[in-house]
Design a protein around this nucleic acid. Sequence first.
DNA 1: GAATTGACGCGGC
DNA 2: GGCCGCGCCAATT
Length: 105
Amino acid sequence: MTLSPLQERILQVVRNVPRGYVVSYGQVAIALGMPRAARLIGQAMSKMEDVQDFPWWRVLNNQGVISIKGNQFATKTTQKQLLEAEDVEVDQDYRLDIARYRYHF
DNA sequence: GAATTGACGCGGC
DNA sequence: GGCCGCGCCAATT
């Protein structure tokens, strides 16, 4: 499976996010040099069913809410668990204190 | 090639 | 605080 250039760049950026921190899709877009392309990040990531070797769970929207749809390998439930495994507090509405955990590139 | 699609963001009400 | 609508832009259909 061949990843698009955009997907590879996303992987590269997301891999820089340390354990215990999160970033918004918009931040990733900015890091890629496309400040307004936040949607593309989600679009691209949803296609990465074959690629799980990067911390995709540290990416959420700017409200600090997990807005994931839910693939076979990625659901908001699993994302919540993965975050909690990194000592990130996530409430029952899949919301967290974004201001507290946000990572600045 | 044209239209639609999204794991989004933000301004307005 | 929440809901609504519009703009964004590569990948898909």
